[in-house]
């Protein structure tokens, strides 16, 4: 039986790009269901999503932040009984045509979570120096804890199986969640792996990581990961 796949798109004021992203999902993988989590957008994001038939829209009444809106997507996937959930940004950076290859690796059982990574050899993505340094320190930290050779710990382009969906529905960090989520996956006894993808430049909106926040970002995530090492995560038991 084919697995039921849900694409989770968290969106906060993404009216410039969300339409294109949804359209290219329709073009490249029409067989997958889509849910957009509108994180209290003040612009036309929700109206644009409403134009697409069969795209579910969950509107948070006010802005909760990226972590909470992604988690809302995983809770939705959990409640609706999806086998695989794919996380994809609304700004058009993630190559939606690669979603089927992420899903295929999850289906094949390569790992519980497959990350579409920017840093593996074949990609031409060139981030700024500050961001590279920050992300490389974080990657090393995650690597020290998880020890799985994951190069792009901050990529939000991921496909998760049922066990990871259940874990994330229960535990998911508030802000800058991607790197810490990997530690949670590891601590829950699950496995993550990555696959190289070519990232596109942003189509609209602004990146959620601004330079001023970089220091807060590093300290917060490092502290969270350090504490997670000593936390207990109850493992998910499939009851279906």
């Amino acid at each position: 039986m084919e697995p039921r796949v849900l694409i989770i798109i968290p969106a906060y004021n993404e009216e410039d790009s969300i339409g294109n992203v949804l359209q290219s999902i329709r073009d490249h993988c029409p067989e997958y269901d889509v849910v957009v989590i509108d994180d209290g957008s003040a612009d036309a994001t929700a109206q644009i999503v409403g134009r697409f038939e069969n795209v579910a829209l969950v509107r948070l009444p006010y802005n909760l932040g990226i972590g909470a809106s992604v988690q809302t997507g995983y809770k939705y996937a959990m409640q609706e009984g999806y086998d695989i959930a794919v996380q994809c940004d609304a700004d058009g950076q993630h190559p939606v045509d690669r979603i089927p290859s992420l899903v295929a690796r999850v289906t094949a059982g390569d790992a519980d979570l497959i990350i579409g990574s920017r840093y593996v050899a074949e990609s031409a993505y060139k981030p700024s120096l500050g961001r590279r340094v920050g992300k490389s320190i974080l990657s090393r930290l995650v690597d020290a804890v998880v020890g799985g050779g994951i190069t792009d710990t901050t990529s939000g382009f991921r496909a998760a199986n049922r066990k990871v969906i259940a874990t994330f529905a229960k535990y998911y960090p508030d802000d800058y969640p991607e790197a810490e989520a990997l530690v949670i996956v590891h601590k829950s006894g699950l496995k993550a792996a990555e696959t190289a993808v070519e990232m596109n430049p942003r189509q609209g909106g602004r990146t959620s990581i601004r330079l001023l926040h970089a220091v807060y970002y590093m300290i917060k995530v490092a502290l969270a990961i350090f504490i997670d090492v000593f936390r207990k995560f109850t493992k998910h038991v499939e009851t279906r």
Binding site: R59, P61, Y62, A68, T72
Partner: peptide, 17 residues
């Protein structure tokens, strides 16, 4: 309040469907 907000949003979606 985060869990409550998520729950409200999911229920609103379900109600609409």
């Amino acid at each position: 309040h985060r869990q409550l907000t998520q729950e409200v949003a999911l229920l609103a979606n379900r109600l609409k469907r």
